[in-house]
Computed example of a mutant assay.
Amino acid sequence: MPELDLPQIAESQALAYVTSNDADAKLEAALCSELSGHDPSAGDVTLSAAEFRGAWHHVIGGSPAAAFNFIIPAIARPFMVSNASGETATVKTATGVAGQVLDGETRLFYSDGTDVRSLTDTLSDGSGGGGHSGALVLLASDQSITNNTATPLNWGSESYDTDGYHDNTTNNSRLTVPTGVTKIILRGQIRWDSSIAGVRQFLVNKNGSGSFDGRSVGTLEAQSPLTLQDFVSPVLAVTPGDYFEVNAWQDSGGTRTVVSNVSCWFSIQAIE
């Protein structure tokens, strides 16, 4: 069995029980053992094949300065990760879809050797209670908005993304509904630069269109020293693959800026 590297009994092997006992011990460890001490304080954590095969539950501690990757080998198997590091752990192979574990969460995953898939809702303490699925994204840098032109905001930074709702590079204006989600709530806040000329507007689009029930749109006269606009959608019925964007619009007569800041963000939360 190459995924768990269990020893195999050869045909007509003498003392076959020894090989069988060794295989049973490895299988028991793969299904029942816990490996703690994963420390991302110096950066990403990369598991060896032996570490990944030899434990079901992986516990992350340490004191990392920022979010980090928890990189597993290209081996197919279910496994569980608990994160007590204070930062978000992105669980991934060298390529493929990644999962995430927020600080204080325990999540169950399956890797097919390339993609990492979440198998359960999150658990805040590893025992009971509902879970959270969603994403919170921010601007990686200030974004210019041309006068009288609706412009999708490009969210180049993630605070968290539990189930592949967002990509920082490809179509980063979008929050996309993953498989298994049927109802969501959108929230956001837009922070404009300092100018009192004209009005500021945001428009939420679904699949590139504004024609959907529960659309959020806001218009506000520009404020000094800055203009903030926020919104919360109703519960929206969705299908996997639906995506949402926030468009910014202004008519100050010149180019204005949506400011990269912790107070400028877009989020999606799965309800069902």
Rank of each mutant, 00 (worst) to 15 (best):
M1C: 11
P2G: 08
P2C: 06
D5S: 09
D5I: 03
L6G: 10
L6A: 13
L6S: 14
P7K: 03
P7D: 14
A10L: 14
Q13P: 08
A14R: 07
L15Y: 09
S20V: 12
S20E: 15
D24P: 03
A25L: 10
K26Q: 14
A29D: 10
A30W: 01
L31K: 13
L35F: 09
H38Y: 15
T46R: 15
A49G: 08
F52L: 06
G54T: 07
A55E: 07
H57T: 07
H58T: 03
V59Y: 01
I60Y: 00
P64S: 13
A65H: 07
A66L: 09
F68W: 14
F68R: 12
I72M: 08
A74H: 10
I75P: 12
V81Y: 08
S85L: 12
S85H: 10
E87L: 01
E87V: 02
T88R: 04
A89Q: 11
T95P: 01
G96P: 03
V97C: 01
V97W: 03
A98P: 00
A98V: 07
A98D: 06
G99M: 09
E105I: 01
E105D: 10
L108C: 11
L108E: 14
Y110Q: 14
S111Y: 05
T114N: 11
D115E: 01
S118G: 13
S118R: 14
D121S: 11
T122C: 04
S124M: 13
G128T: 06
S133E: 12
L139A: 02
Q143W: 01
N147M: 09
L153R: 04
L153N: 03
N154L: 15
N154V: 14
S157L: 13
T162K: 04
T162D: 06
D163F: 07
H166N: 15
T169L: 13
T169M: 06
T170K: 06
N171W: 05
S173Y: 12
R174Y: 11
V177I: 15
V177S: 05
T179K: 10
G180H: 05
L186G: 13
G188Y: 02
R191C: 02
I196Y: 03
I196T: 10
G198Q: 05
V199K: 08
R200D: 01
R200L: 03
Q201R: 13
Q201G: 01
F202C: 05
L203A: 09
N205F: 08
K206N: 05
N207T: 12
S209N: 13
S211T: 15
S211R: 11
S211W: 07
G214K: 15
R215G: 00
S216D: 07
V217H: 06
E221V: 12
Q223T: 11
P225C: 10
L226Y: 00
L226T: 01
T227N: 04
T227Q: 02
D230P: 02
S233K: 05
P234K: 08
V235K: 05
A237I: 03
V238H: 01
P240R: 10
D242S: 14
Y243F: 15
E245R: 00
S252Q: 11
G253L: 04
V258L: 06
V259T: 14
S260A: 15
S260C: 05
V262P: 03
W265Q: 00
Q269A: 15
Q269V: 12
A270H: 03
A270Y: 06
I271W: 04
